[in-house]
């Protein structure tokens, strides 16, 4: 097999570190530490390997340890005019960001972060290495465990190594703001990167070649700003994009992602309901992939 398919030594080491029996918690940058519940303090803490293991600019793919920080990743990619649009604190780790599975505020244009994942190597509950996906930008070989692992809070396996698809960094980025109907903004622009709305004020992110950004900005009567507003961080929930029109959020600060349907608020939000059938499928997955519940105890993807 090609060196591209070989398992790096660091992953073997991590597999030994995860081991086979005791409860473990994988620690990343602790930037979203309490999502899905607080990790059980008695579990042994482990950290995934870090480092950019290969970046082939002409392939637009990057392979790194799951413990790599987003700072390191974006610095590496920026040298070649590339990016992975995760939009998260720089000390967050790639594995942590994917395990939590919450995309950044430019999802409107770049899609869900899970769609940038090409290959994942994880360590399962028996300390064994499992590879899914593949190193190429397109691949349908076998079951798509990569999609499943994103947002799984490490409950099905501990991310060890990922290969991501990179995107070219846009020539120009502009943030604009003003008081305007956000839904009209959405309808008028062709693939804006982000539209944020707090019920009154709108922030729009336009990206692309300069002339296009200028032209689209000229369609709107808005003022330029440095960047997006700070997002309320205590609560986060999602609705159908069109339901944002009739959002009822009582006297809290909130900012919604228009066209996407995510609402950031400063009040903890209730978990969305999971149907009985889906819940039992999810429990089946957990039961099969981690029968003793040793992976990341305390956190729950499916609320108890």
């Amino acid at each position: 097999m090609s060196s591209l398919h070989a398992v790096p030594e660091e992953v073997h080491k991590f597999s030994a570190e995860v081991g086979t029996s005791d409860p473990i918690t994988v620690v990343g940058g602790r930037t979203q530490w309490n999502v899905g519940g607080t990790p059980d303090g008695s579990a042994r803490e482990v950290t995934a390997p870090s480092g950019i293991w290969s970046h082939e600019p002409e392939e637009m793919t990057v392979r790194c340890g799951a413990g790599t920080t987003l700072r390191e990743l974006s610095e590496q990619l920026a040298q070649h005019g590339q990016m992975v649009p995760f939009d998260m604190p720089p000390n967050a780790t790639v594995g942590g960001a994917l395990s939590v599975g919450r995309s950044g505020i430019r999802r409107l244009r770049y899609g869900h972060m899970r769609d940038l994942v090409l290959q994942i190597r994880h360590i399962d509950c028996n300390g064994k290495i499992v590879t899914s996906g593949g190193p190429t930008v397109k691949n349908v070989s076998g079951y798509d465990l990569c999609r499943l692992m994103v947002g799984s809070l490490g409950k099905l396996g501990c991310l060890a190594e990922v290969i991501l698809r990179c995107l070219p960094k846009p020539q120009a980025t502009r943030w604009l703001t003003g008081v305007i109907d956000p839904f009209e903004v959405y309808a008028r622009l062709y693939r804006p990167s982000s539209i944020l709305w707090n019920g009154e004020q709108v922030w729009v992110c336009l990206e692309g070649v300069s002339s296009d950004v200028e032209a689209e900005a000229a369609l709107l009567d808005l003022t330029e700003v440095e960047g997006p507003p700070p997002l309320p961080s205590d609560g986060r929930f999602s609705v159908e994009p069109k339901a944002l029109r009739n959002l009822s959020v009582d006297d809290t600060n909130w900012i919604a992602e228009i066209g996407v349907g995510i609402v950031h608020s400063d009040r903890p939000s209730k978990a969305q309901k999971i149907s009985k059938t889906n819940e039992s499928l999810m429990r089946e997955l957990e039961r099969r992939l981690d029968p003793n519940g040793r992976l990341n105890p305390g956190r729950q993807v499916v609320p108890l």
Binding site: R107, Y143, R147, V150, E240, T277, L281
Partner: peptide, 27 residues
């Protein structure tokens, strides 16, 4: 589903709760 039950995987909201069964089913 293979047991004859009917369910909807994923939903129209941006971040459906639970594991991404939809992503697993596709392909």
């Amino acid at each position: 589903l293979p047991d004859g039950s009917v369910t909807v995987l994923g939903d129209l909201s941006a971040e459906p709760p639970g594991y991404d069964l939809r992503g697993l089913f596709v392909g």
